[in-house]
Design a protein around this nucleic acid. Structure first.
Length: 306
DNA sequence: AAATCGTGGTA
DNA sequence: TTACCAAGATT
């Protein structure tokens, strides 16, 4: 009579909770052994990993993460350093403003939260560099709380398994948030497990380019597969250009300053890019962002760092 | 709310 | 080789 009749073939669209057991079971057997998932990882470690993993692959984060926590095992340790040291230690992870924000977040934690990463979702959201995803991730992974964790992996898994499209919308929508909340298991620990499991599924099997449906634990429940794996129909996904942009120039300038052991003369920075106008714009932008400091003598360095 | 912000691996 | 893609946040 209705779609919920017991004889109906289960689909993730009709009853998304059928996904819970197979996905979590798959995660139990296939989860990567990542340092921020180990029992000795604390909330600070989880938070550091989340900052570094914003738009940066796991493989490149791993070595920097280890060094970072060895050097600054607690938020107060980082807060006590010059921000430029954080920028330097960030290395080539990209988007170096994250390093600055992590430093600022550590300072806020030291001042406002007694040195401990806050457990409250709202307090997490108030920290610099912590947005919707990161707040939910820290609350969930570090503290076992029940939050919808919507990253690019989870959004893609839900788009395929439940919605039946190859890719999610360009920007996170209210419908996606609602779906993620509906899918969240009731038990907080199970919800946290589910969050990590769906992310891992998206990262390892349900990938953007060539999903490994043959090994996917929910392939037979997947709405996208059931529809015949139709090609992406929506608006083209935004793609970023890089060559020739201010971003590239900023990267080159910052690379020089990261390697330098003393303040750098302007002439040395001028060599990284031909166009003087774009070069100046990039350098001024870095100074405005607080990533670079201009000394009274006209030389430049990472902020507060020798 | 669309644009901006790095970097390197991969198909 | 070029284009895509990677645990987003901010303005």
């Amino acid at each position: 009579m209705t779609a919920t009749t017991p004889t109906t073939v289960p689909t993730a669209t009709a009853d998304p909770t059928v996904l819970h057991a197979p996905v979590i079971d798959w995660f139990d057997k296939n989860a990567r052994d990542l340092p921020w998932r180990r029992p000795d990882a604390n909330a600070w470690g989880v938070m550091v990993s989340e900052f570094m993993l914003q738009q940066t692959p796991v493989s490149r984060v791993l070595p920097v993460y280890e060094e970072w926590l060895k050097r600054w095992p607690r938020p107060a340790d980082l807060a006590a350093e010059a921000p430029g040291e954080a920028v330097r230690a960030w290395g080539r992870l990209g988007y170096p403003r994250r390093a600055l924000r992590l430093h600022n977040a550590a300072a806020a934690i030291a001042e406002r939260h007694g040195g401990d990463v806050p457990t409250d979702h709202h307090q997490l959201l108030a920290l610099p560099g912590v947005g919707e995803y990161t707040a939910a991730a820290v609350a969930s992974f570090a503290y076992g709380q029940r939050h919808a964790v919507l990253d690019t992996n989870v959004r893609r898994v839900f788009a395929r398994a439940v919605t039946g499209t190859e890719f999610p919308p360009n920007a996170t929508t209210a419908a996606e948030r609602k779906l993620a909340r509906m899918l969240l298991p009731e038990e907080p620990r199970t919800a946290a497990r589910w969050a990590a499991a769906t992310m891992e599924l998206g990262a390892l099997l349900c990938t953007a380019r060539t999903p490994a449906c043959g090994r996917c634990p929910i392939a037979d429940l997947c709405a996208w597969r059931r529809a015949g794996s139709p090609a992406h129909a929506g608006p083209p996904r935004r793609t970023q250009t890089y060559a020739g942009t201010d971003r590239q120039v900023r990267g080159k300038l910052l690379a020089v300053l990261r390697e330098a052991t003393a303040p750098v003369p302007r002439l040395l920075l001028d060599r990284v890019w031909g166009d003087p106008e774009q070069r100046a714009r990039a350098l001024n932008g870095l100074v405005g962002d607080g990533l670079v400091e201009r000394l009274p003598d006209g030389r430049y360095r990472l902020p507060g760092a020798g």
